[in-house]
Design a protein around this nucleic acid. Structure first.
Lengths: 77, 77
DNA sequence: AAATATTTGTACGTATGTATG
DNA sequence: GCATACATACGTACAAATATT
């Protein structure tokens, strides 16, 4: 599942929704490492700013936690 | 009151704190127009991204509301 | 121990689109 | 039509924390 550049929905919201679903469905389990910003950039063909915008939303929702130099992890567990 | 570029505290956090204080103190009253992004850029000597980062925090805190083409306003009132 | 690579954090600039006045 | 103001999205650069070799 990737972002659709022709969809009117902002890319950062699409990406946030995709990741949120992955977490809610358990595809990304608690304490599991979320793909790096670089990886998400490549996978979805978006800029780092867009990736960080999406991750910032999930962070504000308490769904993920990120640690400098290590990565971003699914919260809970 | 402006941001200090030599302070180790991130500029966007400094700016968010300055605006938060202005709101809490009533200097910026409810329903009042917050200075535009362009104005804040010039006043503090920071980029638009930094201004928007700071405003995004206050927005998430529910302290302000922004409307495209009109501006950003202090919430409440 | 040291150098290198990876990953996130901060900050800048630019371009284009949308909404309002 | 034009000016103002916010929204989205791209790119770049460097710093800091961590992991790897």
């Amino acid at each position: 599942m990737t972002v659709d550049h022709f969809d009117a929905t902002p890319l950062y919201l699409q990406l946030a929704a995709i990741l949120r679903r992955a977490i809610d469905s358990g595809e990304l389990a608690p304490r599991q490492l979320v793909p790096s910003e670089s990886y998400l950039m490549g996978q979805h063909g978006v800029s780092r700013g867009t990736v960080r915008h999406a991750l910032g939303i999930l962070r504000a929702e308490g769904l993920i936690q990120t640690f400098p130099g290590r990565g971003t992890f699914v919260a809970g567990g």
